[in-house]
Amino acid sequence: MKIAVSASGPALDAGLDPRFGRCSHFVIVETEDMSFEALDNAAAAAGGGAGIQAARAVAQSGARAVLTGNCGPSANQTLTAAGLEVFTGCSGTVAQAVESFRSGLSAS
């Protein structure tokens, strides 16, 4: 399954950016084999509605879940409407966040 991580760079070892709408990149990781692609967050510099635009881009990337620090109500609403699951309160690097997500999945 593909998951999107809000990040401060386009790589697995980039730090997880705690803010969803205004992060510089989304790293879209395939949890099966940890392959990934990076998405520039064009919405980061938007005046208003950055979270909504970011959420739309993430939804179009094919990700089924989002790992981030905080996610505003509009972005959350958009992601949920698009059928993505949102996990807030994540930290560390992109790879670490995905790892703990995976171990959380196997534990449950």
Partner: peptide, 18 residues
Amino acid sequence: RHSAIVALPSRVLTFPKL
């Protein structure tokens, strides 16, 4: 220009407050 309406892959969502 205000992100008050957004087309998602499965539906269109509006944000009346924006």
